[in-house]
C-alpha cells in the first residue's frame, strides 16, 4: 500500500492498521508526516497515563449496603403500597365519613323532632309552623353540631376554595358564597322568630347543602 502526505488525515481518521503501518513507513522518509505522526502518537501515549487508580476500601461495603437496602425496599414495596394506599384512603376519607355520619344523625334527629313533636305547645294548626321550647333547644343543638361539622369540612376545603385552581372549584366557591348568604339571611329571619319551624327546616336544608358541597370539594382530587 502506497501512502502519500495527502493521505495523512484520512489514515489517521480511519485508523486501519494496514494504512497506519504504511503511513509509518512513509513517515521514515517524510519529515512533515513524521512530525505529525509523532505528535499524534504522543497524545495517545500520554493519555494512557490519565487512567486513574486509587484505593477505596469503603466503596464496596457502601455499595453492598445500598444494594441490600434496595433489595429490601423492593421486597417491601407491594406491601407498603397496599398499606399506604389503604392508609392514604382512610386518612383522606375518615373526616368526610365522620362529617357524613354527623349529617345523617343531625338530619334524622331533626326530622324526628319536627315530625314527632311529643308536646305541641300551641294549637294544632300552628303546631306545624311553630316549635316549643324543648324542640327549639334540640334544633339549636342540632344546628350547632351541623355548624361544627361544616367548620371541620371548611378547614379541609379552605385552601382549594380560597385559591380555586379549576373552573369547577370556582363554581363551588360561588355556590358556597350563595349558601353563606342564604344562611345569613335565614338566620336573620330566625332571630326575628326563633319558633318558626319552617325557617328552622329551611336553615337545616341549607346547612345540609353546604355540607354536601364541602364534601364534594374535599372529595375532588
Amino acid at each position: 500500500m502506497k501512502i502519500e502526505c495527502k493521505d495523512l488525515e484520512r489514515v489517521l481518521r480511519e485508523q486501519e492498521p494496514p494504512s497506519l503501518e504504511a503511513l509509518a513507513r512513509h513517515a521514515e522518509s517524510c519529515a512533515g508526516c513524521a512530525r505529525e505522526l509523532r505528535l499524534w502518537n504522543e497524545i495517545s501515549a500520554v493519555a494512557g497515563h490519565m487512567r486513574k487508580s486509587w484505593d477505596s476500601p469503603g466503596l464496596w461495603p457502601r455499595i453492598q449496603q445500598a444494594l441490600v437496602a434496595q433489595s429490601q425496599d423492593a421486597a417491601r414495596a407491594p406491601r407498603i403500597w397496599s398499606l399506604g394506599w389503604l392508609w392514604g384512603g382512610f386518612a383522606r376519607n375518615w373526616q368526610v365519613a365522620a362529617a357524613a355520619l354527623a349529617l345523617l344523625v343531625i338530619t334524622a334527629s331533626g326530622a324526628w323532632m319536627l315530625l314527632h313533636n311529643p308536646e305541641p305547645a300551641v294549637e294544632p294548626d300552628t303546631a306545624k309552623r311553630l316549635l316549643n321550647k324543648q324542640a327549639v333547644r334540640e334544633v339549636e343543638a342540632a344546628e350547632a353540631a351541623y355548624i361544627k361539622s361544616i367548620e371541620k369540612l371548611s378547614a379541609l376545603a379552605g385552601p382549594r376554595i380560597e385559591h380555586p385552581a379549576t373552573p369547577l372549584m370556582v363554581s363551588y366557591r360561588e355556590k358556597l358564597l350563595l349558601l353563606d348568604a342564604a344562611i345569613a339571611e335565614c338566620r336573620a329571619n330566625i332571630e326575628q322568630n326563633r319558633w318558626n319551624a319552617h325557617l328552622r327546616q329551611e336553615l337545616l336544608e341549607i346547612y345540609q347543602q353546604k355540607q354536601r358541597t364541602l364534601q364534594d370539594v374535599v372529595g375532588e382530587e
Binding site: 486509587w54 477505596s56 457502601r62 455499595i63
Partner: peptide, 17 residues
C-alpha cells in the same frame, strides 16, 4: 473522587434495578 465513587455506586444500584 467523591463524585466518582457516588457515580459508581449509583451505577451499581441502577444495574441492580
Amino acid at each position: 473522587v467523591h463524585d466518582a465513587e457516588d457515580a459508581v455506586q449509583e451505577a451499581f444500584l441502577k444495574v441492580h434495578r
